[in-house]
Design a protein around this nucleic acid. Structure first.
Length: 843
RNA sequence: GCGGGCGUGGCGGAAUGGUAGACGCAGCGGACUUAAAAUCCGUUUUCCAACUGGAAGUGCGGGUUCAAGUCCCGCCGCCCGCACCA
C-alpha cells in the first residue's frame, strides 16, 4: 500500500506547502477553544540556524502540536531579537550595513526554520530592529518615564582609552580592550535607569506563584534579588563632625569589628584623595580593570589606610582604622562596611594581610578566647562573647539587642537592603532602539512627543571610526526642543536589547499599528503557558521581562503580572572536539573514523578526539543542521533532537545518532505500511501496551520529558512489530501515527493520507486530528512481580495476583525454595512487606 | 570570589526511598545475499565461577534506614550566571 521507503525530501516540501496554504497554524484570536501560548526564546539573527535553535524550537513545536491535537487554540509565534552588537561588529569588519546584514540573516534563517516544518504562526512574525516594533517600545519607555519609573544617574562603564569607546563586558579581555589591547578604565557617564528596585519585593514574592518554573531558576532569582535585613548605622569619624554610614547583616558581631572600609568612589574616599597623593593613586588604581562583579571579587583584596579613625558607637574608647578598599561596592548598601574578621572570610583575609586585630565574638562551644587563631572565619550560630552587654546571647537575640539600642540612641536603624540594582538601559551604540529623549539646554531632558514617534535610526552612518555613529552623525541629533522650540539635541544612546525582549511576547499576542498591543487580546493569550529557552537567561532576561510586565500592569496597560506561567530551560547541544597533530582544532567534516582511530581526511594524518564540548567556532566543533535536514529530512533531525538526552541536559550531537533516527523513521514507515492486514481478532497484551503508551506519552510531552516519550514509542513500535495481524494491531498503528505526529509531522501526514484517514476528520490533516484517549481499564495490571530480599539483597522474584494481603505475600515468599535455602532454620527478626512490590526478610 | 546546577555500562540515558542499567546508539555473533547496502534474530555493567550461581557496582569519603542512584554531612570534577554577549 505504501512506498518502500519514506522520501522526506518530497514529503517535507509537500506538507509544509499544505500547512501554509491551509493556514493551519495561524492562531485565531476569536477561538472558543481553551488557549495555549507556547513560546521559545526568539533567536538573534546571527546568520544561520544552529543546532541549539533546532533543539529549542523542536521542543516547543512538539508541545504546540500536542496542544492542538488535545483541543487547544495554540499561539506559537516566531520573531527576531534583531538589535545588538554582532551587526555592528560585522559592519566594522566587513563594511556592510548592520541593517542589511541583519535583514539578510533573517531571510536566510526564516527559510531554514521553515524547512524544519515547525507549526508556527508566521503571520505574527516580528523583528525588533524595525521601527514598527521599536517605535512602540519608545512609546512604552515614555509611559514608564511619565510614571516615574525612569531616571537618570551617573554610572561606570568600561572605557577604552585608545579606541575612545565604551566596551561591553565581553569586549574586555583580561582587563584590556579586545581590539586595542589597551588597559580598560572605569569611566562615569550619565545614563538612563529603570526602577526595577521599586519592584524588588513584588518580584521576590511573585516567585512563590511560579510553580511551573524550575526550582533552580527561582532560587537563582531569589539570590539575585538578594533581600537582606540588617542594621544601617553610623560611626563618628574621630576629630571631625563627619560620620561614615555602614550596613551590616550581622549587628550581633559589632564588638568584633576591627576596621571600617569604604568604596573607592565613596564620598569620603574622594575627599581624602583630593589632598592626599597616595590616596589618589590608590583610588586611581581601583579604577583600573573591568566593571564586572567576577573581576572585582577575584582581584587581590587591597586596602589603603586613610589614617582616619572611626569611633565605635558602643564604646567610645575603641577607634577603628578607616580603609579604602577595592572589594567594597558603592552600589550596594551604603558603600561602606564594618570589618569583622573573625566572622567573615573576606574580612579575615584582609585583616591578616594588613595585620589588623581579629576579635572573636561568637563561639560555637564554651571556648571564649578573645584572640582568633586560624585562617577560616567562623560564620555559624553560637553564643556571643567578649561583647559587654551582649555576652551570653545567641546570634539572633544579640542582633536584635544591638538594633534596639542603635534605634533608641539614634545612631542606626533596622534596614532592608537589596542586592538588586536598578536597570541601566543606556548603550553607547548605533544598532538599537533610539532612546526617545531630547536634551534642551533650558528645559533639560524632554520626552519626544508621541505623535513624533517612531524616532527612526538614520541609515546613513559610517563605522570607519570607533564609537557611536549616532553621536557623530552630522544632522540626526539636531532638533528643536518640543517644549520651548529652541535648538536642542537628541539623545544618541540606544536602549539595551534586553528591553526589546522584555515585551515581545505581548506584541506576538496582538499587533495593532497605532499602539503597542490591544489589552483585550493580550488578556486572552497571556500569560505564556510554556516558555522554553536556555538556562543562561535564568536571571537577566527573565527578571527584566517579569519587571517590564509588572511595570506595565502598574500603569494600567495590562492586567497580567507574570508573563511566563511555565518555564523550561533546555540544555546545550555539544559535540566531540578534534585536534590535529600540530595542536590545531579540526571540524567534524575534516576528520574520519577508522575503527578506533581518527584520521584527517586530506592527508590521513592521525587526529586526537577530545572532550565533548559546547559547540563553538573557536573549537570548530559546530554542526550546520541544514545539510543534515537536506540529507535525512526534517523528521529524522527532529526525532534525534528529542531522543536520548533529557531536554534539560546537554545533548551530544553524533553522526551515529542521526543515522539511528533516520533508521527509526524508515522503520515507522514500514510498520505503518503493514496496517490493514488484520481481521476482527483482538490482542489484549498489545491493547494494554497501546493504552499505556497513550497515557505515558501524553504525560511525558506535557512534562517536556521527550526522551521518555521517545523510549515509550520505541517500545510500542517493537510490540507492534512482534504482534500478529489483528484488529488490535491496526488500532495500535493508528494510535502510533497520532502519537508520533507531533514529533515527526511530515511522516505522520504522509501516513495519514496513505491510510485513507485524510477525509475522515477535520480538514484531513493529522495536525488537526484528535489525540487518542487511554482506556483506564487497560492501564491496570492484574499481576505483580514481587522482589524477595533477604537482608536487603535480592534473592528471588515471584509473580502474584495484585492486591494480595501482606501475610499471604509473606507466606508465599517464605515458601520459595531459594528463600528457604537462605533463611534456613533461623527465625526472621522482621519481615517488611510492601504490597505488590517487595518482601524484605531481616534475619 | 559569589550564586545555581550536574556526575549511573564503551556512549546518551531509565529508575513514587523498594528488582539499578528500561529505551536508544555503538560493538560482537548469526540469518538473508554471488557480494555489499538495507533488514531481521541473538548478545553486551565488571569480576569470579564457567551449568543452576556468587560478589562488587550509580564521581570520592562518611552517615540515616529493614532497604539509598534517590535523603543528610564533608570533598572532588565539570557546566551555567555574575548586571554592556544574546
Amino acid at each position: 500500500m505504501t512506498d518502500q521507503r519514506f522520501n522526506p525530501l518530497a514529503a517535507d516540501a509537500r506538507w509544509q506547502a499544505r500547512w501554509e496554504q491551509d493556514a493551519t497554524f495561524v492562531a485565531d484570536d476569536a477561538s472558543a477553544k481553551p488557549k495555549s501560548y507556547i513560546l521559545e526564546m526568539f533567536p538573534y539573527p546571527s546568520g544561520r540556524i544552529h543546532i541549539g535553535h533546532v533543539r529549542n524550537y523542536t521542543m516547543g513545536d512538539v508541545l504546540a502540536r500536542y496542544k492542538r491535537m488535545t483541543g487547544h487554540e495554540v499561539l506559537h509565534p516566531m520573531g527576531w531579537d534583531a538589535f545588538g552588537m554582532p551587526a555592528e561588529n560585522a559592519a566594522m569588519e566587513k563594511g556592510v550595513h548592520p541593517g542589511g546584514w541583519t535583514r539578510d540573516n533573517i531571510a536566510t534563517m526564516r527559510a531554514q526554520l521553515k524547512k524544519l516544518g515547525f507549526a508556527i504562526d508566521w503571520t505574527r512574525e516580528l523583528a525588533t530592529c524595525e521601527s514598527d516594533y521599536y517605535g512602540h517600545e519608545q512609546a512604552l519607555f515614555l509611559d514608564l518615564l511619565e510614571a516615574g519609573l525612569v531616571y537618570r544617574k551617573e554610572s561606570a562603564v568600561n572605557w577604552d582609552p585608545v579606541d575612545m569607546t565604551v566596551l561591553a563586558n565581553e569586549q574586555v579581555i583580561d582587563g584590556k580592550g579586545w581590539r586595542s589591547g589597551a588597559p580598560v578604565e572605569k569611566r562615569k557617564l550619565s545614563q538612563w535607569f529603570l526602577k526595577i528596585t521599586d519592584f524588588a519585593d513584588e518580584l521576590l514574592d511573585g516567585l512563590g506563584d511560579l510553580d511551573k518554573w524550575p526550582d533552580k531558576v527561582r532560587l537563582m532569582q531569589e539570590n539575585w534579588i538578594g533581600k537582606s535585613e540588617g542594621l544601617t548605622f553610623r560611626f563618628a569619624v574621630a576629630g571631625s563632625s563627619g560620620t561614615v554610614e555602614v550596613f551590616s547583616t550581622r549587628p550581633d558581631t559589632i564588638f568584633g569589628a576591627s576596621f571600617v572600609a569604604v568604596a573607592a568612589d565613596h564620598p569620603l574616599a574622594q575627599r581624602i584623595a583630593a589632598d592626599n597623593a597616595d590616596a589618589a593613586a590608590f583610588v586611581a588604581r581601583c579604577k583600573q580593570g573591568g566593571t564586572t562583579a567576577a573581576e572585582v571579587e577575584t582581584q587581590e583584596k587591597l586596602g589603603f589606610d586613610t589614617g582616619l579613625k572611626a569611633i565605635h558607637p558602643l564604646d567610645a574608647n575603641i577607634a577603628l582604622p578607616i580603609y579604602i578598599a577595592n572589594f567594597v561596592l558603592m552600589d550596594y548598601g551604603s558603600g561602606a562596611v564594618m570589618g569583622v574578621p573573625a566572622h567573615d572570610q573576606r574580612d579575615l583575609d584582609f585583616a591578616r594581610k594588613y595585620g589588623l586585630d581579629v576579635r572573636q565574638v561568637v563561639t560555637p562551644d564554651d571556648s571564649a578566647d578573645a584572640v582568633f587563631e586560624g585562617d577560616t572565619a567562623f560564620t555559624g550560630e553560637g553564643r556571643i562573647v567578649n561583647s559587654g552587654f551582649l555576652d551570653g546571647m545567641d546570634v539572633t537575640a544579640a542582633g536584635a539587642a544591638v538594633t534596639a539600642r542603635a534605634t533608641s540612641e539614634n545612631w542606626g536603624e533596622a534596614t532592608t537592603t537589596w542586592r538588586l540594582r536598578d536597570w541601566g538601559v543606556s548603550r553607547q551604540r548605533y544598532w538599537g532602539t533610539p532612546i526617545p529623549i531630547i536634551h534642551c539646554a533650558t528645559c533639560g531632558p524632554v520626552g519626544v512627543p508621541k505623535d513624533q514617534l517612531p524616532v527612526v535610526l538614520p541609515e546613513d552612518v559610517d563605522f570607519k571610526t570607533p564609537g557611536n555613529p549616532l553621536d557623530r552623525h552630522p544632522s540626526w541629533s539636531q532638533v528643536d526642543c518640543p517644549k520651548c522650540g529652541g535648538a536642542a539635541r537628541r539623545e544618541t544612546d540606544t536602549l539595551d536589547t534586553f528591553v526589546d525582549s522584555s515585551w515581545y511576547f505581548l506584541r506576538f499576542a496582538s499587533q495593532p499599528k497605532d499602539r503597542p498591543f490591544d489589552p483585550e487580546i493580550v488578556r486572552q493569550w497571556l500569560p505564556v503557558d510554556q516558555y522554553i529557552g536556555g538556562v543562561e537567561h535564568a536571571i537577566l532576561h527573565l527578571l527584566y521581562a517579569r519587571f517590564w510586565t509588572r511595570a506595565l500592569a502598574r500603569i494600567g496597560m495590562i492586567d497580567v503580572k507574570e508573563p511566563f506561567a511555565g518555564l523550561f530551560t533546555q540544555g546545550m547541544v555539544t559535540h566531540e572536539t578534534y585536534k590535529a597533530g600540530d595542536g590545531s582544532w579540526l571540524s567534524p567534516n575534516e576528520v574520519k573514523r577508522d575503527g578506533a582511530d581518527w584520521t584527517r581526511i586530506i592527508d590521513g594524518t592521525p587526529v586526537t578526539p577530545g572532550r565533548v564540548e559546547k559547540m563553538s567556532k573557536s573549537k570548530k566543533n559546530t554542526i550546520d543542521p541544514l545539510p543534515i535536514v537536506d540529507q535525512y529530512g526534517a523528521d529524522a533531525v527532529r526525532w534525534f533532537m528529542l531522543s536520548d538526552s533529557p531536554p534539560e541536559r546537554d545533548l551530544p550531537w553524533s553522526e551515529a545518532g542521526i543515522e539511528g533516527a533516520w533508521r527509526f523513521v524508515q522503520r515507522l514507515w514500514r510498520l505503518i505500511g503493514s496496517v490493514g492486514k488484520g481481521g476482527g481478532e483482538t490482542d489484549k497484551p498489545l491493547a494494554q501496551k497501546l493504552h499505556r503508551t497513550i497515557a505515558g506519552v501524553g504525560d511525558d510531552i506535557s512534562a517536556l520529558a521527550f526522551n521518555k516519550a521517545v523510549a515509550k514509542l520505541y517500545e510500542l513500535a517493537n510490540a507492534i512489530e512482534k504482534a500478529k495481524p489483528s484488529a488490535t494491531r491496526d488500532d495500535a498503528i493508528d494510535g502510533l501515527v497520532r502519537l508520533v505526529a507531533p514529533m515527526v509531522p511530515h511522516l505522520a501526514e504522509e501516513a495519514w493520507a496513505q491510510m485513507g484517514r485524510a477525509n475522515n476528520e477535520d480538514r484531513g490533516l493529522i495536525a488537526d486530528a484528535a489525540w487518542p484517549v487511554a482506556d483506564p481499564a487497560l492501564l491496570v495490571d492484574d499481576e505483580a512481580t514481587i522482589a524477595i530480599q533477604v537482608m536487603g539483597k535480592l534473592r528471588d522474584t515471584m509473580t502474584l495476583p495484585k492486591g494480595m494481603a501482606k501475610d499471604e505475600i509473606e507466606a508465599a515468599a517464605m515458601a520459595r525454595e531459594k528463600i528457604v535455602a537462605y533463611v534456613g532454620d533461623s527465625v526472621p527478626k522482621k519481615v517488611i512487606v510492601v504490597p505488590d512490590r517487595l518482601v524484605n526478610i531481616v534475619l
